[in-house]
Computed example of a mutant assay.
Amino acid sequence: MNKMAIRVPFVDLRLQHEPIQAQLQNAIQSVLDRGDFILGQALSDFEAAFAAVSGAKYGVGVASGTDAIALGLQACNIGVGDEVILPANTFVATLIGVLRTGAKPILVDCNRQALIDLKAAAKAITPHTKAIIPVHLYGQMVSPQNLFDFADTYKLLIFEDAAQAHLAQRDGYHAGSVGIAAAFSFYPSKNLGAFGDGGMLLTQNSDVAQKMARLRNYGASQKYFHTEPGTNSRLDTLQAAILHQKLPYLPQWNRDRLTIAEEYDRELAPLATFGIIPLENQSDTGHVYHLYVIRVDDSCPIERQQLQEELIVAGIQTGIHYPIPCHLQPAFTYLGYQPGDFPQAEKLSKQILSLPMYPGLSSSQIKEVVAAIANAVSKDSELDKSYSVNLSR
């Protein structure tokens, strides 16, 4: 299918950028005028601003979300001989970040909302376990209160993977304010996205922040004075300037996402009979819906792949986040995990489907997406006919 045939794209960043194009261009021009492209003023300003709105004291910008995890764990003194618990159903960057420290990743299963199963995590504790990484997946946080209880019981560090949870809230806490540190990604399609790769570590701990600042800059505490082996991983000043201009709009963009999700919930409700089940929002207005994810349950008349194909024919793009859990990825078979080790993560990986979700997605587009799903799963039924009638009005 050619690009012109797409009626509802999975993401449309133009809707976000066009209204503030002049501001973005001015921000870029300001950096060009100053010429401070590396560790410049716009980076310092954005680090402070993003930390403040996220309830953290310190922000350290890096080149990617993956580096925010890997270097952030190192800044928290995670390394060889340590074990780190993380969910099997996450993007591989979480796992790669642990591996880069030399620590041993310990994968565990998830619950039905795709968040880490803390009961499973408790069974994975050993004398070498030092930290747990709750992944705030799809824009919904793992419960901070449950994490506090868990970490206190087992004397563990909490290191948040908040790559999909910019300004998410739960139990009165923002993502990024719960653990000793938190990693964020500014990949372009994130709720707060750059014009390329970028990431940040947030922390309440000044020692962690200072070590992170050294690690991202060749391990240097000052120019040409290197106290530890670091790397080159700095958030570009240009990207920071762009992100800082977008930051004031993020709360409204997140509210728009919540409104869209609520409309999806209402429109999809009749399709529960056909095995189309949205993942549950357990965070009320604190869910920021980086992704809107449904399950194509075993009771559905068609399989997920067929549904996705029929939606493409209807001009609707979808995604799968993620189709293969970390423990079944070919690159990580050496870790020793087998199919069946994490049944909930494996089941979800075969059922989940991400629908179009972005600020500016219209009510008519939402109805078009849902009608296409209804048509695919309930052909020739009265429900499908009712959707067709409603759309024609």
Rank of each mutant, 00 (worst) to 15 (best):
M4C: 00
F10W: 14
V11M: 15
R14Q: 14
I20E: 12
A22T: 13
A27Q: 04
Q29F: 08
A49H: 13
F50V: 15
V53Y: 11
K57T: 07
V60R: 14
G61L: 03
A63S: 14
A75K: 07
V80P: 03
D82S: 11
V84K: 09
I85A: 07
L86W: 00
T90N: 04
T90L: 11
A93I: 01
L99W: 00
T101S: 09
A103E: 11
K104E: 12
P105H: 02
L107W: 03
C110Q: 00
C110M: 05
L115G: 01
K119R: 08
A121H: 00
K123W: 01
T126V: 00
K130R: 15
A131L: 03
I132H: 04
V135A: 13
Y138V: 02
Q140A: 11
V142N: 01
V142I: 11
F150D: 03
L156Q: 06
A162N: 11
A163Q: 06
A165G: 13
R170H: 13
D171G: 08
A175F: 08
G176A: 08
S177E: 03
G179C: 01
A181S: 11
S185A: 13
F186L: 08
F186G: 05
K190G: 01
L192H: 11
G196R: 03
L202N: 05
T203W: 01
A209I: 10
K211P: 09
L215G: 07
N217K: 08
Y218D: 12
G219V: 12
S221W: 11
H226C: 08
G230A: 12
N232H: 11
S233E: 09
A240R: 06
L243F: 10
H244Q: 08
K246Q: 15
L247E: 09
L247V: 06
P248G: 01
N254Y: 10
N254D: 07
R255F: 02
L258G: 07
E262F: 02
D265A: 03
R266K: 13
A272D: 06
I276L: 05
V288S: 02
V288I: 14
V288L: 05
Y289L: 03
Y292D: 02
I312P: 01
I316W: 02
P323V: 05
P323C: 08
P325A: 05
P330D: 09
A331Q: 14
G336P: 06
F342G: 03
A345E: 02
A345N: 03
L353I: 09
Y358Q: 08
P359Y: 02
P359I: 00
S362G: 10
S362I: 04
S364N: 13
Q365D: 15
I366P: 12
I373T: 04
A376K: 10
V377W: 02
K379S: 12
D380G: 07
L391P: 00
R393H: 10
